[in-house]
Structure formats: structure tokens, C-alpha cells
């Protein structure tokens, strides 16, 4: 059982996809204008990740190695479409405020990264928990960033007013430049306190966000990781 717990905490803390691995930056920056948006995006991504992880893990013995990428793409894209349809039908507000960033979950590095690096090699149960851990880790990160931006940019968190009425919101924080700035400060803090993160491995600047290469991300990671 401990193996499963380990998977959960791994995704939540040790290898938090946003704070530690620095993956999936597009949605992280784009949708975190509010805590609610962050939560919606995080959970949608988590569902896609869990479903894709489980399916790929279940099929891992049948997937021919040569065509595994198209295989992953088909499965992940289907999951994303299903999630999108469900959102449209039952929680249209979320679908509306996230717009094209929902279908763009398909190209989120976190999904391909996990499917390729973990689910394609491990049992269904473990992959399930890996997906849950990573998905929740991503969700929590987005909610934290979203709350921060919403607090400074609008004075609210989850639409509840937190700041006193006299607080003049700094609108920039809910605009694009604010997204970059918040992340800049966040990573600077990680550097300062030498927290484990992809950003403060000094000599590997070029490998940030996998050097832009999501599909082969894990090949680079593998070289660095000793366990597994």
C-alpha cells in the first residue's frame, strides 16, 4: 500500500508538476486569473491525466513501441474531448471561462510526460495513483497561483472579498504581464531558499520545460533520475 501513497505524495510534493518539474506552463500562466479558474483547469487536467494513465497502463502490453506516440495522442485527445463535452453539458460556466485552454490540455506536457514516463511502464493501480497525485499537485499549484493573482488583481479569492474595500486592485495581476511576474517571483523564491525545482539546477537552463520538447521529456529526465 505504501507504494501507492508514495505515488500520491510524489505528485503532490516531491515532483509537483508545476513547482518542481515546471511542466505545463501554458495553462499555468493563462488561466490563473482567478482561483476558480485555476481549480477548474486543474481538475479537468487531473481527470484527463488519470483516465489516460489508466488506459495506457492497461494497454501497455499491446501498444507497439514504434507507434506509441500516435497511440498516446489518440487516447489523450479522446479523453480531452470527453471531458470537454461533459463540462459543456454539466458545468458550462467552467467551459466558458477556460475556452480553448480545455482542448489544449491535449498538448499539456504533464499529460504526455506522465503517460510516457510512467503509465507506459507501470501497473494500472500505480498509474492511477500517479495520475491522481500529479493531477492534484497541478490543481493545487494552479489554485495557489490563481488565488494570489486574484487577491492582488481583484481583491478577492474564489470571488469572496478578502481585501478591505479601500484596497485598490492592481489590475495588472489579472492581465498577461501579471502572470509572468507572479511566476518570476515564485521561482526566485525557490532559488533563494534552494527548494528542489527544475529551475535551480544551475547548469541546465536549456532544459527548462524540457527544452520545449514534451514528447521526449522523460528521456532527458531519465538520465538524471536514479530511482525507478
Amino acid at each position: 500500500m505504501n507504494k501507492y501513497l508514495e505515488r500520491l505524495t510524489n505528485g503532490l510534493f516531491k515532483e509537483n508538476p508545476t513547482f518542481v518539474l515546471m511542466l505545463g506552463m501554458c495553462p499555468t500562466l493563462a488561466v490563473t486569473v482567478s482561483a476558480t479558474n485555476g481549480l477548474g483547469m486543474g481538475l479537468s487536467t487531473a481527470v484527463v491525466l488519470v483516465a489516460s494513465n489508466v488506459i495506457i497502463a492497461a494497454l501497455r502490453k499491446f501498444i507497439p513501441n514504434t507507434v506509441r506516440m500516435p497511440y498516446f495522442i489518440v487516447v489523450v485527445a479522446s479523453m480531452v474531448t470527453i471531458v470537454q463535452l461533459l463540462l459543456q453539458a454539466y458545468v458550462p460556466e467552467v467551459n466558458e471561462s477556460l475556452g480553448i485552454y480545455i482542448p489544449l490540455i491535449v498538448v499539456n506536457c504533464i499529460i504526455f510526460g506522465r503517460v510516457e514516463a510512467y503509465a507506459a511502464k507501470n501497473k494500472v493501480g500505480l498509474s492511477l495513483f500517479d495520475g491522481i497525485g500529479m493531477g492534484l499537485g497541478f490543481t493545487i499549484a494552479l489554485v495557489i497561483i490563481g488565488s494570489f493573482r486574484e487577491l492582488l488583481g481583484a481583491g478577492t479569492i474564489f470571488n469572496y472579498r478578502v481585501m478591505p474595500e479601500s484596497y485598490e486592485p492592481i489590475a495588472m495581476f489579472v492581465k498577461p504581464p501579471g502572470a509572468f511576474l507572479v511566476l518570476a517571483v515564485l521561482t526566485a523564491l525557490q532559488n533563494k531558499f534552494r527548494l528542489p525545482s527544475a529551475t535551480n539546477k544551475k547548469d541546465k537552463v536549456s532544459q527548462l520545460t524540457c527544452g520545449g520538447d514534451c514528447l521526449n521529456c522523460n528521456d532527458r529526465e531519465k538520465a538524471e533520475r536514479k530511482e525507478d
Binding site: 494497454l59 499491446f62 501498444i63 507497439p64 514504434t66 507507434v67 500516435p70 497511440y71 489518440v74 487516447v75 479522446s78 474531448t81 470527453i82 463535452l85 461533459l86 459543456q88 453539458a89 454539466y90 458550462p92
Partner: peptide, 28 residues
Amino acid sequence: KDALSLTIITIICSFALAFVYEITKDPI
């Protein structure tokens, strides 16, 4: 073999999608 297995998964996925689409069509 590769092509066949890819075709199969695509067909399965299409069915799954069509199924969800049918369910969600009216609520949407």
C-alpha cells in the same frame, strides 16, 4: 500490425466519443 492496432484503438476511441456525445448532446 502497428497500423492495425492503431486503427483498432482509433475506432474504440471514436465509439467512446460518439457515445459521450450522444449523452451530452441534449444537456448541451
